[in-house]
């Protein structure tokens, strides 16, 4: 399990307007492309100076592919990153605050302590 890599996906997609649209429209393709091309990029280094070891588990790939924010929360992905990206992708399809409230309601079965988000 790699909470860090989940967070890295959410972070790098959220900060790029084109990737936000791509992830909304084609999550499976975006996740496959991102894992192949971006997962091992060190963000403050040149593209040749890559890491060699970062990969998703199949559960993580599935959660990202299926836009499953509840599973991401349960895996310990950083809730701020997930929420921010998912609002960017889906708020537009709903009335004011409707998406945010439904997002919380989908998690109402979860109780404290929440999953650890430390990376």
């Amino acid at each position: 399990m790699s909470k860090y890599l989940l967070d890295k996906f959410l972070y790098t997609v959220d900060r790029d307007p084109e990737l936000v649209e791509r992830y909304r429209e084609d999550p499976a393709g975006t996740v496959a492309w991102w894992e192949a091309e971006m997962a091992n990029r060190i963000l403050n280094c040149t593209t040749d100076e890559k890491s060699t070891w970062l990969a998703f588990t199949e559960d993580e790939r599935r959660a990202l592919r299926e836009h499953d924010h509840v599973a991401l929360f349960e895996m310990g992905a950083h809730p701020f990153l997930t929420l921010t990206l998912f609002i960017a992708c889906f708020e537009r399809d709903h009335g004011p605050l409707e998406y945010q409230k439904a997002y919380g309601k989908a998690m109402e079965h979860l109780t404290l302590p929440y999953p650890d988000i430390a990376t």
Binding site: H78, E108, L110
Partner: peptide, 10 residues
């Protein structure tokens, strides 16, 4: 404050 969890936006 709750962000991205079940108690958000109450």
């Amino acid at each position: 404050l709750e962000l991205g969890g079940p108690r958000q936006f109450g």
